[in-house]
Design a protein around this nucleic acid. Structure first.
Length: 603
RNA sequence: CGGGGUGUAGCGCAGCUUGGUAGCGCGUCUCGUUCGGGACGAGAAGGUCGGAGGUUCAAAUCCUCUCACCCCGACCA
């Protein structure tokens, strides 16, 4: 024992003294690789939907990841604290987030009838805390973080640790009096961006940083850190020719040609199309491709001034509400069906012509919905229930003047209002096409601005003794999700292949026959020697047949295996094998083992 | 929330159609033989058949309700 610190080295963990219940077969409900392997390797067990036990092995991985997060956050100037999981519902009063969260929020009532939430995240709690202790600009900037269990009553938990209802999260919050310059939000944001890059790199992950939905401050105020994996829930778009990457909602689309010319005067005709849910069914009935249809989605303005926005995209494209908002220049929401019908929209059969017939309607047309692949002749809703038209031509049939340039501020505008998709032109590199990839979101950083400080009336005094708004940023990492993501990226038929920095143990010492004194003694000695050298060692001292031990060692995915057996002992050494090595492994003399193992772990 | 599926021993499954009082493999325990990539033999333990109600002489099996878990989908009319 070191007399000064409390660090103790040379501790050997024995398989027979811990709980590593490996499974030969995975429980039937697990279908995702990481989920199956975490169950099989005895890392976790399911308690309820989206709720898991962390067994010793899984908990060690959680601790390793947490420690990396902690070190990099500390290095970036953040300080760790711990907030309660219980959040009194009144704390949400200012932000209304209890309502925004809806059913996602776990709620409980205590014995006095008070309503309390299990925290899904802690903006409210931390703002209240810092507000009470920080009153001067001199105390800022400040960044605090915690690593804590979070609760979200997910609609559909899935894939083990990838989407649980109870999970471990690192959440950080920063406080500033300015955006730019020394001590400003941007400075901290950039520093934490780099800290996140360091964290995920150290965890051995292959990841992509993508631009995400911009915050209230504008610009690229939000980034998501996505682990590249086919099993991911999110789709991201990347430009192969530049470093641009973004999630589907945020992704910009490069220049596209557009024009309202039509190749023919195809006559407009009306078709009966009852009981056809969706564009595909209608297109099939009309004998056109979905890309030959116009999809007209009705929004209502939500900024107090009553009004409508009809967003028109090609039938095979998806309207993006954020882009509609930006193009309209005002806040919008999908129209309430009842109100829209009263205003004259035949919901389900709306055409662009409603812009001319319904007062206060702004018409937004996506570039690809102008001339399009159909040479300017479209199928569209008929503005009559159960009917669609074919042969729609913009210049002849709209009934309003068409714009001759994108943007503008007239009642008819051409604008980018749809989600990007694979194959769309890159916004950064002419000639390049966006590619779609799947990812697992493990981190998200966000410039919050003054949303919470305003809601909590949190101001500080500046140099001029004036009250000034506090500007905030928030920064999250799904710690338990990182673990699942690591396995998704690194496993084989035999089991997990933990990246060394987050492996539950660095080395497993497999004692072939613990009943033989020379095996037992050599195992103890090697395990002690390696752990004194700084490695985390698991001594497999079970009285099992060798095959069982080898299979289990592969399954739990420890990077290095040292085998103590007759073959090697007779030659004065042990067998050394990396998890990634094929075949037998190699003989290493006792006096060289330490160096060999450390080299393997370091490299 | 919509759709689909599954609940039988720790894990994987059969039995249910056609009711007769529960079985297989793996694992566990004992003994013996084995012992370098999930051994073999003999023996043993272990199940409210998710739960409740009903039909019946009799229910894992049929009926009703209910709970849990898994998968897919979900503002795009």
């Amino acid at each position: 024992m070191n007399p000064i610190s409390t660090i103790r080295t040379g501790v050997t963990h024995r398989w027979t003294q811990t709980l590593i219940p490996t499974l030969r077969e995975a429980p039937a409900e697990a279908t995702t690789p990481s989920h199956r392997l975490m169950l099989r390797s005895g890392c976790i067990r399911q308690v309820a939907a989206g709720v898991y036990d962390f067994l010793p092995l899984g908990f060690r991985v959680l601790q390793k990841v947490s420690q990396i997060v902690r070190e990099e956050m500390d290095a970036a100037g953040a300080s760790e604290l711990l907030l309660p999981a219980l959040v009194p519902i009144e704390l949400y009063g200012g932000t209304k987030r209890d309502e925004a969260y809806g059913d996602l929020l776990f709620r409980l009532t205590d014995r006095h009838g008070r309503l309390t939430a299990l925290g899904p995240t802690h903006e409210e709690t931390v703002t209240e805390l810092v507000k009470g202790s920080v009153t001067s600009y001199k105390q800022l900037p400040l960044t605090v973080y915690q690593i804590q269990t979070k609760f979200r009553d997910e609609f559909r938990p899935r894939a083990g640790l990838l989407r649980g209802r109870e999970f471990t999260m690192k959440d950080a919050y920063s406080f500033h009096t300015r955006i730019e310059g020394d001590g400003g939000l941007n400075e901290t944001y950039d520093r934490l961006y780099q800290a996140y890059v360091n964290i995920f790199t150290r965890c051995g992950l292959d990841f992509t940083v993508v631009e995400a939905e911009a915050g209230p401050i504008g610009g690229s105020a939000s980034h998501e850190f996505m682990v590249n994996a086919e099993t991911g829930e999110d789709t991201i778009l990347v430009c192969p020719a530049s470093s641009y990457a973004a999630n589907v909602e945020k992704c910009e689309i490069g220049e596209r040609g557009w024009s309202f010319e039509a190749s023919s005067d195809a006559s407009l005709s009306k078709h009966h199309t009852p009981n056809m849910p969706g564009i595909d069914a209608v297109a099939g009935h009309l004998g056109v491709e979905p890309s030959g249809m116009l999809k007209s989605v009705v929004f209502q303005t939500t900024d107090g001034e009553p009004g409508w926005v009809v967003a028109v995209v090609r039938g095979d494209h998806e309207v993006n509400e954020g882009k509609v908002r930006d193009a309209a220049g005002r806040s919008v929401a999908l129209a309430d069906e009842k109100l829209a019908k009263e205003a004259g929209f035949a919901i389900g059969y709306v055409s662009p012509r409603t812009a001319a017939t319904v007062p206060n309607t702004l018409l937004l047309i996506d570039h690809d919905a102008t001339r399009g692949v159909q040479q300017g002749v479209w199928a569209t809703g008929s503005d009559t229930k159960d009917h669609h038209d074919t042969g729609f031509v913009w210049s002849r049939d709209l009934g309003l003047a068409l714009p001759d340039a994108p943007g503008g501020d007239g009642p008819v505008r051409v604008a980018e209002i749809r989600n990007a998709q694979a194959g769309d032109p890159s916004p950064r590199q002419a000639g390049a096409a966006l590619e779609a990839r799947r990812g697992i979101e493990v981190g998200h950083i966000f410039k919050l601005g003054t949303i919470y400080s305003k809601a909590f009336d949190f101001v500080v005094l500046d140099e001029n003794q004036k009250k000034t708004d506090v500007i905030m940023g928030c920064y999250g990492i799904g710690v338990s999700r990182v673990i699942a993501a690591a396995i998704e990226q690194s496993h084989d038929e035999g089991g997990v292949r933990w990246p060394t920095p987050i492996a539950p143990y660095h080395a497993v010492v497999t004692v072939m026959d613990p009943k033989k004194p020379e095996h037992d003694e050599a195992g103890d000695r090697v395990a002690r020697d390696l752990s004194e050298a700084g490695a985390d060692v698991l001594l497999d001292d079970r009285k099992e047949r060798p095959g069982v031990k080898f299979k289990d060692a592969d399954l739990i995915g420890v990077p290095v295996r040292v085998t103590i057996g007759d073959k090697a002992l007779e030659q004065g050494g042990v067998e050394f094998k990396r998890r990634t090595d094929e075949g037998k492994g190699e003989l290493v003399a006792f006096d060289q083992l330490r160096e060999r193992v450390l080299a393997a772990l370091g490299g």
